[in-house]
């Protein structure tokens, strides 16, 4: 075990300091040190996708990332997705019944907030392909796919396409 070190992380636009051992996972630091418990831990081996956050705007597994690696990077968690009201994607998940127990949902929201920014007009197959990085045991995925398609359409309309 190496000595704990004071590091400075930029999380949801705020700079925060915390003392971490080098082996400490980003998921644990977010949840335990910063009380950002919306990032869920489902497998701790990078398969289930529940812990997905954005690192420099790209989706990544917080359970496979050491917090100490994150100095100089920008981390965005589910807590920063909506300031007032829900984002179009969150609203669509609600309207399309795209969640049941909701444990996997923050990871799915983070994955597709990034995806829809880069891919405003995706096909259903493409959405399923990207969604395959997030496991959901409740829904059978159908309503999540509809929600993503609906959110994409709404966001395109709002952008004036």
């Amino acid at each position: 075990m190496s000595e704990a070190r004071l590091i400075s992380l930029t999380v949801n636009g705020e700079t925060r300091e915390t003392l971490v051992e080098p082996r400490r996972l980003l998921s644990d630091v977010l949840r335990e040190d910063f009380a950002l418990t919306g990032t869920h831990v489902g497998c701790e081996h990078g398969v289930c996708g529940a812990c997905t956050v954005l690192i420099d705007e790209k989706p990544a597994r917080a359970c496979l990332t050491y917090a100490i690696q994150m100095e100089g990077h920008e981390i965005t968690t589910i807590e920063a997705v909506s300031d007032a009201g829900l984002s179009p994607l969150q609203r669509a998940l609600h309207e399309e019944h795209g969640l049941q127990c909701g444990f996997c949902t923050p990871g799915i929201v983070m994955t597709f907030e990034a995806f829809l920014r880069d891919t405003p007009d995706p096909g259903e197959e493409e959405v399923r392909d990207v969604l395959s990085g997030n496991l959901c045991r409740c829904t059978g995925y159908q309503n999540i796919v509809s929600a993503v398609m609906k959110a994409a359409a709404e966001m395109r309309e709002a952008a004036g396409d």
């Binding site: 418990t37 807590e79 909506s82 829900l86 609600h94 969640l99 909701g102």
Partner: peptide, 21 residues
């Protein structure tokens, strides 16, 4: 009716076991 519980769950404000301090 769409679900009442969704709002907290889609925004990361659910309280699952490990979220309880």
């Amino acid at each position: 009716l769409p679900r009442k519980e969704d709002r907290r769950l889609v925004t990361g404000h659910g309280r699952y076991l490990d979220d309880i301090i």
